[in-house]
Nucleic acid binder design. Structure first.
Length: 292
DNA sequence: CGGAGCTCCTGGGGGC
DNA sequence: TGCCCCCAGGAGCTCC
């Protein structure tokens, strides 16, 4: 469930720990973790060996670390791209620490200090080394929209693009090519804060409503980031393996049958898009003409 | 080409 | 106690 705030917590941790360090060796213990690296695990390891990490960057839920090649290679721009999927973790562990049960990739550094470990129970996440464009954005991230915290995010452009869509509002919020970083939890929280139903037709959403839900998404994700992110089942943790505290601040997600904080009506859980959606039946009434 | 549904995966938890 | 099934869901892929 790592969404933008959780990925940003990890990015900040990485910036503290790996920026400027040189890679000694990479071990891939589960090929699925590097399936997005088309040339295979050996190629991934070879591209990283001897290279130096730069400053970690992020767009939406995608994280990447520029890699500056060793002296023996031309310095074509490349980056190590990481997506945490549902259960991915990036941990900085002392080399002697016991391996985690779901350790997939280990990066050892030449300085012998803490190693970078990619741990992923459900294996939806993964790593790849990819070329970057003139703006430093990797291939697989180029189709991802800017996220609401990107200085170049265009609020009016978002509202216009949303209203041009012919789909349901939550579906659109989860579409990473429209706005990135929002997942199931923060979509539900943003919709509750904006008092909008998930099945509102996007072409019927007013400009003001579009601004409201965007502002709500920004607000809830900023609050979550300030608390170190949201955690469930200890699956999401920062690079030190610690959980965030935002779960206790969630207004609707995971709160089926509990009173809405605004109106005391009981929160409902509904199945939608093969996942759970939580809403207040009073604050977020079902639209006359729903779109799923 | 936009939109929608399917699928990948594992472990925790509930029901019987 | 053990087994089976459901559930969590990001995003690429496929089909219409």
């Amino acid at each position: 469930m790592p969404e933008l705030p959780e990925v940003e917590v990890v990015r900040r941790g990485l910036a503290d720990w790996i920026d400027g360090r040189t890679i000694a060796e990479v071990e891939v213990s589960h090929p699925r973790a590097v399936r997005r690296h088309a040339a295979g695990p050996l190629d991934l390891a070879a591209r990283l060996r001897g290279a130096t990490f730069g400053r970690p960057a992020r767009r939406g839920k995608y994280l990447w670390v520029p890699v500056v090649a060793g002296a023996d290679r031309s310095s074509v721009g490349e980056a190590l791209v990481v997506h945490l999927g549902m259960s991915g973790q990036l941990l900085l562990q002392p080399p002697g620490n016991p391996d985690e049960r779901h350790l997939r990739v280990r990066v050892r550094f030449a300085d012998g200090g803490r190693e970078l470990r990619f741990v992923d129970q459900r294996t939806f996440g993964g790593l790849a080394v990819e070329p970057t464009d003139g703006d430093g954005v990797p291939d697989s991230v180029r189709h991802i929209a800017r996220d609401p915290f990107d200085p170049e995010f265009d609020d009016e452009g978002f509202a216009a693009a949303l209203r041009r869509r012919h789909t349901g509002l939550k579906r659109a919020l989860l579409d990473q090519t429209l706005v990135s970083g929002i997942g199931n939890i923060y979509a539900d929280e943003a919709l509750w804060a904006a008092r909008l139903h998930y099945a509102r037709a996007t072409d019927g959403v007013t400009r003001a409503e579009a601004e409201r839900v965007l502002g709500a998404a920004r607000g809830v994700m900023a609050a979550a980031l300030a608390q170190g992110g949201t955690s469930f089942d200890a699956l999401y943790v920062n690079v030190e393996g610690e959980s965030g505290y935002f779960e206790r601040s969630l207004a609707v997600y995971g709160r089926e049958g509990l009173p809405c904080e605004r109106c005391a009506a009981l929160v409902r859980r509904e199945s939608f898009m093969n996942r759970s959606s939580y809403r207040c039946p009073v604050c977020q009434p079902r639209p006359r003409r729903p779109r799923w």
